[in-house]
Design a protein around this nucleic acid. Structure first.
Lengths: 226, 226
DNA sequence: TGTCACACTGAACGCGGTCTGAACACTCAC
DNA sequence: GTGAGTGTTCAGACCGCGTTCAGTGTGACA
């Protein structure tokens, strides 16, 4: 999952970036409204954390422009001001959630998890696909109750696939959502991760659609045609 | 839109009900956890506002039971306690949003709007032609619910035909939309793909108009003339 | 009915996407 | 510094899929 943070305070920005990266997200940080607007329009983020008081371009304006451009990524708004009229303005500009400074990092993470979950169409806190489970809070996976030991990047790949289970996910999309901006495009890292994942969770769970991408399925529910 | 409010305080309950009805929602009020659980499981609500401190059955338990029963309606949690650890617990039980008492009614309404808006965005684009379906998001096709295994190019051909069903699509047009610029004109690749497609989805679905092109139809709706 | 052009089919080939094991680079913990 | 754990690169092998081709089938028209 790839998150855009738009925050002008360098300290808070760094702190947020660190916390999110620690939680397993790929993070880009924009220090002002203009750059935030540009990044949000050009890069495929799964969610954005947006400060309201920003230099160059206000947070609400950024959000409005994203929405006007058809961007429907979930946005969590952040602000020092706690007057409810501004919260409401933020919401009606198209924000999905709102957090008032100061806040506890845990709560930001929890709200972000809920947002990502809901966006992917899942209500449950734990993602499930047959007897494969991913606990997004603890960042742990299990098959049939048996915990599986995953590395950070293996977890990211699996997590993204779980959020889009049943769908064909192109390799390029996987790359874009797992790494932040600069990444060597022609590399077979993803294939290696897929291979290692298959060995850990069972090889019949991740299908490869040749020329299209990968697809996560529940092998019990879905009989493989042919 | 139909909303369930689970709140034990009679004053607050009435106040919420009024505000929501004023905003145009249909509202049911449950005074304790047990009734809330029952109503949420049996009636088709679009969202729920759930207090955490409830008699008979705690809010988090209610939420967990809903989720366990497969109910995925968006839930906004309400509580007097503002300790963040409980918020996080609420989120990870499957809540979509959280509000701490006391709150401004406007903010509750704004959060509810955001929640409903986000939840509504899940109509996945599927093309249909009789009992033939192509889910353009998942890049999958099915006939009569049975999934069909297609190769990348077969899928492209079918997808284009689905977008122009009923119309005669010249072979040249098909070629132009499936390949990039340079393509050997005298080749019968398209015919081969059409043939393979017919074998997979049923041969009577793609008509060939001699000298003109191909036409995708619903064989049940359209009786073959002559 | 015969002819011709167009369309279909099955088989075969070879490119290239995908997989895998192993080696390498790097970062931490001790 | 040493070792384990992790991310990345590389080369070789595999095999699925797009393409080609030859042979057959079929509609249009005289």
């Amino acid at each position: 999952m790839r998150i855009l943070v738009v925050e002008d305070d360098p300290d808070l920005g760094r702190q947020l970036t660190e916390a999110l990266e620690q939680a397993g997200y790929a993070v880009d940080l924009a220090p002002d409204g203009e750059e935030g607007l540009f990044l949000g329009e050009t890069e495929p983020y799964d969610a954005a954390v947006l400060d309201l008081g920003l230099p160059k371009l206000d947070g609400v304006r950024v959000l409005e422009k994203w929405r006007a451009a058809g961007k429907d990524l979930p946005v969590l708004i952040l602000t020092a001001r706690d007057r409810w009229s501004e919260k409401v303005a933020g919401f009606d500009a198209g924000a999905d959630d709102y957090l008032t400074k100061p806040f506890v990092t845990e709560e930001l993470l929890a709200r972000l998890r809920a947002l990502l979950r809901r966006t992917a169409g899942h209500a449950n806190a734990a993602l499930e696909c047959g007897d494969l489970r991913v606990d997004t809070h603890a960042a742990r996976a299990s098959v049939n109750g048996e915990p599986i030991k995953l590395t950070a990047h293996e977890y990211r790949v699996l997590n993204y696939l779980m959020h889009h289970q049943g769908r064909v996910v192109p390799r390029t999309e996987l790359v874009e959502h797992i790494y932040d901006q600069d990444f060597d495009r022609d590399s077979n890292t993803i294939e290696v991760f897929i291979g290692r994942l298959r060995r850990k969770i069972g090889s019949n769970r991740i299908l490869t659609e040749r020329g299209l991408g990968y697809r996560l399925i529940d092998p019990k529910a879905e009989k493989i045609t042919e």
